[in-house]
Simulated assay, not measured.
Amino acid sequence: MRVPLSVMALLVALASTAPVLAAAEGGPAWEACVGPTSTPDQRVAACSSVIDTGSETGRRLAGAHCNRGHGLTEKRELDAALSDLDEAVRLAPDYACAYNNRARVYSFKRDYDRAIADYDQAIKLDPSPALAYSNRGESRYSKGDLDGAIADFDVAIKRDPNYATAYANRGYVYARKHDTTHALADYTTRIKLAPDILAYIDRGNVYRDSEQLDRAAADYGEAIRLAPTDARGWRNRGMIRLFQGDNKGGLADYDKALQYDPSDVFSWNNRGQAKLRLGDKQGAIADFRKALELKPGLQTAQESLRKLGAP
């Protein structure tokens, strides 16, 4: 019997438009406002200082609003970010940065039609950055337009063949379309460009869903190697081990998963399955009950307890 997995099906998070104005003509506040290494808090404070002095006008003032909007977006203060980005568009309607960053706020607010319209305008003003296409692809995907999303990721990759995020996102959409060959190719390229934990988990999920369990286990093992205190690699590999009948290995992996993430209901449920297969009835009952404590009504845990005579 297959056991449920807390699947890490994740469209990789899309980067926002980086500040684009040169810092050479300003003082420390201006440099922090537009500098690529500023934290969101630093950016918001510095851009506020620039705006409040009243020393900037036109496109430079629009840039300060655009970059403060960027910082506020990173802080998830979306209404305040939208106000800044509206002002940036008003001050410089030919400034692609403002449309890119405002589109990202609309996307976070799940207003995908407005997000796509702003990305359209940003691309019309400056069709060169890969980021705008990748971000528009994310919004198209969120609307359910999978083919439109792939088309945008295609362009993003043509603009920047080393853009790992675009490969990750295109791979995810191909996986949703059950196009295993293209999904694996994109995830493999992503791993070559940026071999982080999510890269291996995403490819492992495709191997898992296409019944290539040894390869899935190997990718989850790489995720564990890269991030041994992250529960995701452990619980994904634990599920594969249970699929393969390695109940002791599955139990060991779920022990680790719960050590690092004791709030994951599926790890409790799946570890209960492993314990049940290994003859530890009381341990299984305890784990199923914990799963139900975390998620009342979890059907698999309820059915397992009922079969064990322990409702």
Rank of each mutant, 00 (worst) to 15 (best):
S6I: 05
A13R: 08
T17K: 10
T17G: 15
T17E: 15
L21F: 14
L21M: 14
L21G: 04
A29N: 10
A32E: 13
V34Q: 05
V34C: 13
G35D: 13
G35E: 10
P40N: 02
A46P: 02
C47T: 03
V50K: 05
I51Q: 09
D52T: 15
T53M: 12
S55Q: 13
S55L: 13
T57W: 05
R59L: 11
R60M: 02
G63M: 05
A64Y: 06
A64S: 06
R68E: 08
H70T: 06
T73Y: 11
E74H: 02
K75F: 04
D86N: 14
E87L: 00
A88G: 02
R90S: 10
P93G: 08
A96R: 05
A103G: 14
V105Q: 01
S107P: 03
K109A: 09
D111I: 09
A115I: 04
A117K: 05
A122M: 02
D126T: 00
A132R: 11
Y133Q: 07
S134W: 05
R136Y: 12
G137C: 08
G137D: 04
E138M: 14
Y141T: 05
K143L: 14
G144H: 05
G144N: 03
D147H: 06
D147F: 06
A149M: 05
A149F: 11
A149N: 01
I157M: 00
R159Y: 03
R159N: 01
P161R: 00
Y167L: 13
Y167S: 11
R176T: 06
R176D: 11
K177G: 04
H178A: 11
H182M: 13
L184Y: 04
A185M: 02
A185F: 04
R190F: 10
I191A: 03
L193F: 09
A194I: 00
D196H: 07
I197A: 11
L198I: 01
L198W: 12
D202N: 15
R203W: 12
S210A: 06
S210E: 00
L213G: 00
D214F: 10
D214V: 12
A216Y: 14
A217G: 09
A223H: 12
A223L: 14
R225G: 06
L226K: 10
L226F: 13
A227S: 13
P228E: 00
R232D: 02
G233L: 08
G233R: 01
R235Q: 14
N236R: 03
I240L: 14
L242S: 05
F243N: 05
Q244G: 04
A252P: 09
A252G: 02
D253R: 11
Y254G: 11
Y254P: 12
F266C: 03
S267Y: 11
G272K: 00
K275L: 15
K281M: 07
K281R: 15
Q282T: 09
G283S: 04
F288L: 03
F288Q: 03
E293M: 08
G297M: 08
T300L: 07
A301K: 02
A301C: 04
A301E: 03
E303K: 09
R306W: 10
P311C: 01
